[in-house]
Design a protein around this nucleic acid. Structure first.
Length: 770
DNA sequence: GCATTGTATGTACCC
DNA sequence: ACGGGTACATACAATGCG
């Protein structure tokens, strides 16, 4: 019996049912039941774009025969499509076996008249989302029939899809069941190794419960079994961890495999498996790694769960129990220590749970906007999110999706950075262009298919200020259209936000607005990315050329008004403030350049050295911004950073040079008298490659080598902390901080090469009156 | 043989 | 595995110096 259900799409995968390939759609109905829809109607398809002069009938016949030869079935059709805006004839070929389709396409390309193959590089689940109205994290109505084919799946009901997905308007997601976990492995040096290090503590937090499993002896099979049982019982929609993709799943799955347990926690009773973008998938659930979220947040200084939780106000009131390598081995020695470990782990499971609840709306909106499944969208690099969004737009207008291609690397000029006027400046306005690159692409219709190399009457084209690229003014191009849609979506959201009543509704709207902004800001960078399906060096190059031209013109307009331009970078100008004239400048920019600029902030005082991209300023509310200087660089010692911060506060708040010098001198005295703790001297650097790939003996590399010798595992992405120590015979100048003690520290190095240069630079600059 | 100089390497930052 | 522009420390090789 057919019936219609309301369905919210959580996850999907291309699977096998009764030896038939079939789309599995996991979700929730409007009564809150977890359901599985099976769509047997769907077949992936590829497109062959034909040459313009080819005779349709013969080539279609040839392709039909070829398809039969390759056992694809003869289901092919000729369709009118678009390729970069131009009308083309294309042959659509449906298939169920990807490798047969690949062999067919290779042969088809040898036929005269077949120009290119499209969409064969898209996975079936991607094609499904692009070809149907089904959207992840959205409600739909869909006609289904009951089936008993649900044996072996952990859902109460399974249906066969009988019709098309029809989108429903309501934005709010159903209540999702979250399960957060945190694991600690038996103490080891450096990154944990699944072969040696059993799971020591595993904490799980769900809405109603918190549980921990602690290692008893050396066998962690009890922990793993307990975890599997718990996940199945709680049946979460979202399973969330921190560094779970790069660490925990790998570790937990291989531990379970080694013990022949099988970590079968998915709704298809399978174990977590590696998927695209280094992500681990749990069929029927969303596996979320909050580290992906943290890595995307430049405002987080350290990409840790603790920092993320602090930032979002989800940290425990009493503070986190520390869990560094050094403290870990100590904990393990006593009964009380093990209790601490357990509580530390529970704190983190709780924090992950809270952070995920906080971030969930954003994640779901980003997923529905780009149509990347919610568990992939955070793991996917920004370029792939844009790619996915653009594929969606392309498909809507009948475009075939271009293949991802190998291309030569090519650099081009980027934003303009002006040399600052060094010194201390009073009252400086920061004027910036709003969404400069997106607006350039819209205003000048910058897009791969609007770009022309042929000579055209100049009134029909926009010509880039450098490089001589020409873009048709009409019709509107692919990128500009996509960007305008994003802007319109943002305006709709803002209008809705004005009338939104409830908290949840507001939250969802704000999350969507953020998602829209993230995608529009990423479009320019995408166009210059070699991996982009719609890569276009002309587009990227022209966009920045217009940017340089705009900022230069705006700077000239400012000077014409008698304003002093102190500094500028890409889309911003620092201008000696004069309220009337700055207002006038904004008007002039609007009228003469046809672009919108605004005053972002006004600094009461701002200090520039001779260096670009480095300054510090104070606003009237007393807030101090430090940009680019040592104080905000994670690869300087804390002692140097803190001292520079104090000195800058003195200089900017008007306490003057004397106060700054006094603070500096005091700190130097403290250092020499041993009043500064060891950890403030540690210099941290991230390993960018395996140890063997380094060409020079850089300090952090030397330190890492020592660690490795002592049994640590050092991998790319690991942070290595080292100290500069007094050189003695047979001893290197640097030491991993774990192996050094306070007496070893070369205090004169820290005075002369860290604290003094960082502080002297800004003090000297502040002496100059701007 | 050693100090000076120039260039390469490596990291982290800004927009 | 989105872009280019930039500073800065350190290593290392080349250069110069009777």
């Amino acid at each position: 019996m057919d019936k219609e259900i309301k369905f919210w799409l959580l996850d999907l995968n291309w699977g096998t049912l009764d030896r038939q390939r079939c789309m599995f759609l996991w979700g929730i109905d409007d009564r809150g039941r977890r359901v599985l829809l099976l769509d047997e109607q769907f077949e992936p398809s590829l497109y062959l774009v034909l040459a313009g002069d080819v005779q349709l009938e013969p080539i279609a016949g040839q392709l039909k025969r070829l398809a039969t030869e390759h056992e694809l079935g003869a289901d092919i059709s000729v369709e009118e499509k678009r390729q970069l805006g131009r009308r083309v004839q294309a042959v659509r070929v449906r298939y169920s076996d990807n490798s047969k389709a690949e062999r067919f396409a290779a042969d088809a390309l040898r036929l005269k008249g077949v120009k290119s193959v499209h969409e064969l590089d898209l996975r079936p689940s991607t094609l499904y989302l692009l070809d149907t109205q089904a959207t992840p994290c959205r409600w739909h109505r869909v006609k289904v029939s009951e089936t008993d084919g649900s044996a072996g799946y952990a859902v109460p009901s399974t249906y066969l899809v009988r019709g098309e997905f029809r989108p429903e308007g309501d934005l709010s997601p159903p209540p999702l069941r979250l399960l957060a976990f945190h694991a600690i492995y038996k103490p080891s040096k450096g990154s944990p190794d699944p072969k040696k290090d059993p799971v020591a503590v595993l904490s799980v937090k769900t809405e109603g419960s918190a549980r921990s499993f602690v290692l008893d002896g050396s066998d962690d099979s009890g922990i793993l079994n307990g975890f599997v049982t718990l996940v199945r019982r709680e049946d979460p929609d979202v399973v969330v961890g921190f560094r779970s993709n790069s660490r925990d799943w790998l570790h937990l799955v291989s531990r379970a495999d080694a013990l022949d347990l099988g970590l079968n926690v998915s709704r298809a009773m399978t174990k977590p498996h590696p998927s695209v973008h280094g992500h681990f998938s749990i069929t029927g659930r969303l596996a979320i790694d909050l580290a992906d979220l943290a890595d995307d947040m430049p405002e987080l200084e350290t990409k840790t769960l603790e920092a993320l939780a602090e930032y979002l106000g989800s940290a425990p009131k009493e503070g986190f129990i520390p869990l560094e390598e050094v403290t870990m081995s100590r904990y393990w020695e006593t009964e009380q220590g093990i209790g601490d470990l357990r509580r530390a782990s529970e704190q983190r499971a709780q924090a992950a749970y809270d952070v995920c609840s906080e971030a969930l709306d954003y994640l779901l909106e980003l997923s529905s906007l780009t149509k990347l499944p919610a568990d992939h969208v955070l793991a996917a690099p920004v370029g792939f999110r844009v790619d996915s969004y653009l594929m969606l737009k392309a498909k809507r207008s009948g475009e075939v999706v271009p293949p991802r291609e190998e291309r030569p690397y090519y650099t081009y000029a980027g934003g303009l950075v002006m040399a600052p006027i060094p010194g201390m400046h009073e009252l400086v306005a920061v004027v910036d262009f709003r969404s400069m690159y997106p607006n350039i692409m819209i205003s000048f219709n910058v897009s791969p298919e609007t770009m022309v190399r042929t000579s055209r009457p100049s009134e029909e084209v926009n010509i880039s200020p450098e490089g001589g690229y020409r873009f048709f003014k009409e019709p509107r191009g692919f990128f500009p259209s996509a960007l305008i849609e994003l802007i319109e979506e943002r305006q709709r959201i803002e209008a809705q936000l004005k009338s939104a009543r409830s908290g949840p509704e507001k939250r969802v709207l704000m999350a969507r607005e953020k998602a829209v902004k993230v995608i529009s800001n990423a479009v320019y960078g995408y166009t210059g990315w070699l991996g982009a399906r719609w890569y276009s060096k002309g587009v990227a190059e022209s966009t920045t050329a217009w940017g340089r031209s705009l900022i230069t013109k705006a700077s000239n307009l400012a000077e014409e008004l008698g304003l002093k331009v102190v500094y500028g970078d890409t889309d911003s100008l620092f201008i000696s403030y004069d309220a009337d004239n700055v207002r006038k400048l904004l008007t002039d920019i609007g009228q003469e350049l046809k672009f919108e600029a605004r005053v972002d902030k006004v600094y009461e005082r701002v200090i520039f050295t001779e260096a670009k991209k480095r300054y510090a300023g104070i606003t009237s509310d007393g807030a101090v911004d430090i940009v680019g200087l040592e104080a905000v660089r994670s690869d300087w010692s804390e002692v140097a950073r803190r001292t520079q911060r104090e000195v800058l506060n003195d200089l900017l708040s008007g306490r003057g040079l004397e106060a700054a010098r006094a603070d500096l001198d005091k700190m130097i005295d403290d250092i020499r008298s041993g009043r500064v703790p060891l950890q403030d001297f540690v210099i941290w650097k991230v390993m960018s490659r395996p140890l063997s790939k380094y060409k020079v003996r850089a300090p952090h590399v030397e330190a890492a080598r020592v660690l490795e010798e002592k049994g640590w595992t050092i991998k790319p992405g690991d942070r290595v902390g080292y100290l500069v120590v007094r050189a003695t015979r047979n001893k290197p100048h640097v030491m991993p901080y774990q192996l050094a003690s306070a007496e070893d520290i070369d205090v004169e190095y820290y005075v002369n090469e860290q604290v003094l240069p960082a502080c002297t630079r800004v003090i000297e600059a502040a002496k100059i009156k701007g």
